[in-house]
């Protein structure tokens, strides 16, 4: 039977825009790729992101490619609820079937969402982990926040997650600060998966790791995305990361999406001048 109607997206970003400073039609028209900047010359307003739309379904990973200042961080922060965007809407389908409108939620609701439904894996493990406490304790943080109160059950779940993310169990009770960079990232992944979220945001998850370590972490992430059926957004400036993890991606420049497409298509047949330059530089 022919059914290529995709399942409803788990995460939907619609018309997202965020500006620092006042905006009107000219600020929008006079910023972006054509203007060559996200900062409006006359008013000084920075249009960090504008007119950004995409969606991601469970089991799918979408890449967001761009250099620093492209607006990808702004988009990530808006999804994470860290900033309230100037305009647009971000919605997330929770595991229980309800819809969370992230752009309308209170800080307390955002925090609950981040415990149960939306996880972020940061580039710097120190942003996602407490390095003073143990690997198990870092996972316990997520579990207790979700209401786990049984010590043995918490231990068991933490061990299960650490095993899955290939952290040796004899390190479970060591402070994460004593771990290598790659191992910290694995603990961060374990923590991110603790409450089986429906969406995970991966922010440069392997940047800063040695190539061989990064390959192992990437491989692990790829397997976890398949296994858990998560909807993932992968932000990276590194094409090898995007290529390995995602099926679709968007390219951002000066706060706008300049191109979107299938990942292999964007890498082999980029259409926008900026995409071509990025790919050319990466392939050189």
């Amino acid at each position: 039977m022919t059914n290529i109607t995709p399942v409803a997206p788990t995460l939907a970003v619609v018309g997202l825009g965020h500006a620092y400073g006042g905006i009107d039609d000219t600020t929008i028209a006079e910023t972006g790729p054509a203007a060559g900047t996200s900062k409006h010359a006359r008013t000084g307003t920075v249009v960090a992101a504008w007119d950004v739309s995409f969606d991601v379904a469970g089991g799918e990973a979408l890449g967001v490619i761009g250099e620093s200042g492209s607006g990808k961080s702004t988009v990530m922060k808006s999804i994470a609820g860290d900033i309230m965007p100037t305009t647009g809407r971000v919605t997330l389908q929770r595991g229980d079937g309800t819809t969370a409108v992230i752009t309308e939620m209170s800080p307390a609701e955002i925090r609950a969402l981040r415990v149960n439904d939306l996880s972020i894996v940061h580039q710097n493990p120190a942003d996602g982990l407490d390095l003073r406490i143990t690997a198990g304790g870092n996972i316990a943080d997520r579990l207790t926040a979700a209401g786990w109160r049984n010590f043995a059950a918490i231990r068991e779940r933490a061990a299960e997650l650490l095993t899955r993310t290939e952290v040796p169990l004899d390190r479970m009770d060591d402070p994460v600060g004593s771990f290598s960079g790659g191992m910290r990232q694995r603990v961060q992944l374990a923590k991110a998966l603790a409450n089986t979220p429906s969406v995970v945001l991966l922010d440069e998850p392997t940047t800063g790791l040695d190539a061989s370590i990064a390959a192992g972490v990437l491989d692990l992430i790829r397997g976890l995305l398949d296994e858990f059926g998560l909807a993932a957004v992968v932000v990276s400036h590194d094409f090898s990361v995007i290529e390995m993890l995602t099926q679709r991606c968007v390219v951002m420049q000066h706060g706008r999406v300049v191109e979107h497409g299938l990942t292999d298509q964007l890498l082999e047949d980029p259409a926008h001048p900026y995409s071509q330059r990025l790919v050319g530089a990466a392939r050189a």
Binding site: G137, A140, D141
Partner: peptide, 12 residues
Amino acid sequence: AKMWVSLYEDRV
């Protein structure tokens, strides 16, 4: 949650 984690860590 942080208090629970500190109790967890204490016990571990």
